[in-house]
C-alpha cells in the first residue's frame, strides 16, 4: 500500500467560494441538487449527499448590535467550512457493505465501486457523519472517492486543486497532521483559543479521519457529530445480545411445546 493520503481542511482560511464544491461536481460529473433558495446564509445545497461530495457550510454568528451604542464595532463571525467524506480509519460504511462495493484503496481511502454496489443502503445508515447517500434515480450509493482516479494519475483531488486559499490541503496524512498541529498552535498564539482539530486523532471513535479539519467552533455548529463512533465497534456485543435472544427464542419454543404437551394431554 502506498502512503496513506488525506485532507486537512483548515476552515480558518476558507472563504466560502465553493470552488471545491463546483470542481468536485465538474470532475465527477455529478448531477445538480435542484434549485432551491434555502435562506440559510449562503448555503443552498444543505449537506453532503449522493450528488454533493464537497459541501461548504456557512454559519453566521452575529449578535444583535445595539445601534445606539456607537462605540460598538461588533463581533461577528462568518464561519465557512468545506465538508467531505472523512475516509475513516475504521470506516463503518466499508465495514457494513455486504457486497464489497466499498473498499480501501492503496491510498488508504474509502471508495465505492459503482458497478458492484447493489444499493442496499446499509452504508447510508452506518456512516456516523451522514456522508454517504443513495441516489434515487440509479439506486446506488455515492460519496467522495478522494478522486481515486486523479490520485492514480498522480494528480491531487479536484477540490484541493481548486481551493484558492489552501483551505483544503491534500497530502500524506502524517505530514498533514503535523502541519495541522502547527497551525493550531499558531492560531492559539494569535489569540484564537477556539481553534481546534477535528478528526485528526487516531484515538477517536473512528480511529482518526483521513480527512480532518481545523474548526473554530464546536463540530455540531458545522453539522458535524461531536463524538462519532464507528458503529461496528459494538458489533461483537450486538451479536452476543442477539445470540442470547436467539437462544431465548429456541428456549421459549421448547418450553412452549414442553408445557403444552401437558396441556394436550389434559
Amino acid at each position: 500500500m502506498a502512503e496513506r493520503m488525506g485532507f486537512f481542511t483548515d476552515t480558518s482560511v476558507c472563504i466560502g467560494c465553493k470552488a471545491c464544491q463546483v470542481a468536485c461536481k465538474e470532475w465527477n460529473l455529478l448531477p445538480d441538487d435542484g434549485f432551491v433558495f434555502e435562506a440559510n446564509s449562503y448555503d443552498n445545497t444543505g449537506a453532503l449527499g449522493a450528488n454533493t461530495w464537497r459541501h461548504v457550510a456557512f454559519i453566521e454568528q452575529s449578535r444583535p448590535v445595539p445601534v445606539d451604542d456607537s462605540a460598538d464595532d461588533g463581533v461577528e463571525r462568518w464561519l465557512m467550512s468545506s465538508d467531505v467524506c472523512k475516509h475513516c480509519t475504521h470506516a463503518a460504511c466499508l465495514d457494513v457493505c455486504p457486497t464489497g462495493a466499498l473498499f480501501r484503496t492503496e491510498f488508504g481511502t474509502v471508495v465505492i465501486q459503482e458497478d458492484i454496489c447493489n444499493g442496499c443502503g446499509y452504508c447510508v445508515s452506518a456512516c456516523p457523519y451522514g456522508v454517504i447517500e443513495r441516489r434515487e434515480d440509479d439506486g446506488r450509493a455515492w460519496k467522495c472517492t478522494m478522486c481515486y482516479d486523479r490520485q492514480r494519475g498522480g494528480l491531487e483531488p479536484a477540490c484541493a486543486k481548486a481551493c484558492p486559499t489552501d483551505s483544503i490541503q491534500f497530502g500524506p496524512l502524517d505530514e498533514l497532521r503535523e502541519r495541522a498541529e502547527e497551525r493550531v498552535e499558531r492560531l492559539h498564539a494569535d489569540g484564537q483559543a477556539e481553534a481546534r482539530l477535528y478528526g485528526e486523532s487516531p484515538d477517536d471513535g473512528v480511529g482518526g479521519a483521513g480527512a480532518f479539519f481545523l474548526l473554530l467552533d464546536e463540530p455540531e455548529v458545522y453539522g458535524l457529530p461531536p463524538d462519532p463512533v464507528v458503529t461496528t465497534r459494538d458489533l461483537p456485543a450486538m451479536w452476543r445480545w442477539a445470540g442470547a435472544a436467539a437462544l431465548s427464542v429456541a428456549g421459549a419454543v421448547a418450553v412452549a411445546f414442553a408445557s403444552s404437551r401437558k396441556g394436550a394431554r389434559r
Binding site: D95, V96, C97, P98, T99, G100, A101, I116, C117, N118, G119, C120, G121, Y122, R134, R135, D138, G139, R140, A141, T232, L235, M238
Partner: peptide, 25 residues
C-alpha cells in the same frame, strides 16, 4: 428494497462478518 435489485447476487459475492447484512444474507 435494493436500489439495484438486479445486483442482489452481489450480496453473495462476499462473506463479511463485519456486515450484519452480509451475514444476514
Amino acid at each position: 428494497e435494493l436500489g439495484r435489485p438486479a445486483r442482489f447476487l452481489n450480496m453473495l459475492r462476499v462473506f463479511k462478518p463485519t456486515s450484519p447484512m452480509s451475514m444476514g444474507s
